[in-house]
């Protein structure tokens, strides 16, 4: 499985890497803009990410906007969201409006920080990433 982690905060990024390291190869980026570039390059190379973990509040481009742009890149290549990357939004913002926005932007799951390994593994199982 190919995994992209987009998280600007180092400790959260390391925790996610530590939890996901057994699942496949991991690339990390530190803002939404880089996440869109990385996802776009992976699509162009014909090796798209299977799982993308996107922090919501990031500099340059936030996770919600990055999600919309990544889905738009997939649509351009004829990939519908059900066949695209599984996207897990991760945020400290326990805000129902942001969750609704994320699901409208076609994410697959949403978890609240601090990351709980058991909860993340459960969500991954639910979306078929285990």
């Amino acid at each position: 499985m190919r995994i992209l982690i987009a998280e600007d905060e180092l400790i959260s990024r390391l925790v996610l890497q530590g939890i996901l390291e057994g699942f496949g190869s991991i690339n990390t980026v530190v803002n939404g803009e880089e996440a869109v570039i990385a996802a776009g390059m992976a699509l162009e190379q014909g090796r798209p990410y299977d799982l993308i973990c996107l922090d919501v509040m990031m500099p340059r481009l936030d996770g919600l906007e990055a999600l919309c742009r990544i889905r738009a890149l997939e649509v351009k290549r004829g990939i519908t969201s059900s066949r695209g990357a599984k996207v897990v939004m991760i945020s400290a913002l326990d805000d129902p409006k942001k969750i609704v926005t994320a699901f409208k932007g076609l994410c697959d799951a949403y978890i609240i920080k601090p990351v709980d390994k058991a909860e993340l593994l459960k969500k991954l199982k639910e979306i078929g990433c285990s």
Binding site: I11, L14, V15, G18, D116, K117
Partner: peptide
């Protein structure tokens, strides 16, 4: 410990990075 499912190696690694950063 509970959140990391008692993965002590991961916990110690993140504590060290936290103290450093």
């Amino acid at each position: 410990k509970r959140r990391l499912m008692h993965d002590d190696a991961l916990m110690l690694m993140v504590l060290q990075v936290f103290m450093q950063e």
